[in-house]
């Protein structure tokens, strides 16, 4: 009995990791498409999003089943709860990748500001690294690493603020830039949200490892 249950838990873990990799790929592609003004790649992100959503549904269904049929406790329960909660965060991250991709498609033809695009590329790089690292921390069940990742979210927030005020300045100087800069602001805020979801997943990794539900890098004091 126990062996069967363990195989099912292992399976759940593997499917969650796959979903994580798909989401990371979506973020990577949406960022790459934005930086390179690649409309085709952006469309690909949009077209593939339904696969991520289906993964989430499958993971949810399997988790409910395991809870109902196996009545898991302690570590077993935490494994399932982590997948259940973190898969929703992953799914939302996928949605933001789609939003970035949509902005990429819209941004075509707008007047550009290369300095701001550079800033966004830099911010995107940090977010991408965070989402790669968080999957690694999950696979290794490494709560120390998860805490460290959550901490880098501060950098993301700082970039967001900088991009925001830069956009406002540019818009004051040149009204032709309003449409493009509004998109920049939106993309930056999507990236900022992705950073927040990564932080959430970090919290679930800490829970998985230690059993403690914690708030890492709270936004309250901002």
């Amino acid at each position: 009995m126990r062996k069967m249950f363990e195989e099912e838990l292992q399976e759940l873990h593997a499917r969650f990791s796959e979903m994580g990799m798909m989401v990371n790929e979506a973020i990577l592609k949406s960022v790459k498409a934005f930086v390179n003004h690649d409309k085709v790649l952006a469309q690909e992100v949009i077209d593939h999003d339904h696969l991520i959503n289906e993964y989430e549904l499958k993971l949810e269904k399997k988790s409910f089943e395991l809870i109902a049929l196996q009545q898991p406790v302690s570590t077993d329960l935490r494994i399932i709860v982590t997948v259940l909660k973190a898969s929703s965060d992953l799914e939302r991250m996928g949605d933001h990748a789609v939003s970035i991709a949509k902005s990429t498609i819209r941004v075509k033809g707008n007047k550009r500001v290369p300095e701001i695009e550079e800033q966004i590329a830099e911010m995107a790089n940090i977010v991408k690294t965070m989402s790669d690292d968080v999957l690694d921390a999950y696979l290794k069940n490494d709560s120390a690493k998860a805490k460290k990742i959550a901490f880098t979210d501060d950098e993301v927030d700082q970039h967001f603020k900088k991009i925001y005020s830069q956009c406002v300045e540019e818009m004051k100087n040149d009204t032709d830039i309003v449409e493009g800069a509004t998109d920049y602001m939106m993309v930056a805020s999507y990236l900022e949200r992705v950073g927040d979801y990564v932080t959430n997943i970090c919290e679930w990794i800490v829970y998985l490892d230690t059993g403690k539900i914690s708030e890492l890098n709270s936004n309250l004091d901002e």
């Binding site: 126990r2 329960l77 230690t210």
Partner: peptide, 17 residues
């Protein structure tokens, strides 16, 4: 005890190992 016991033996028993 049922969410996060201190001892591995407790964990193993309540999880049916």
């Amino acid at each position: 005890i049922f969410t996060n016991p201190k001892e591995q033996a407790t964990e193993d028993y309540i999880s049916g190992r």
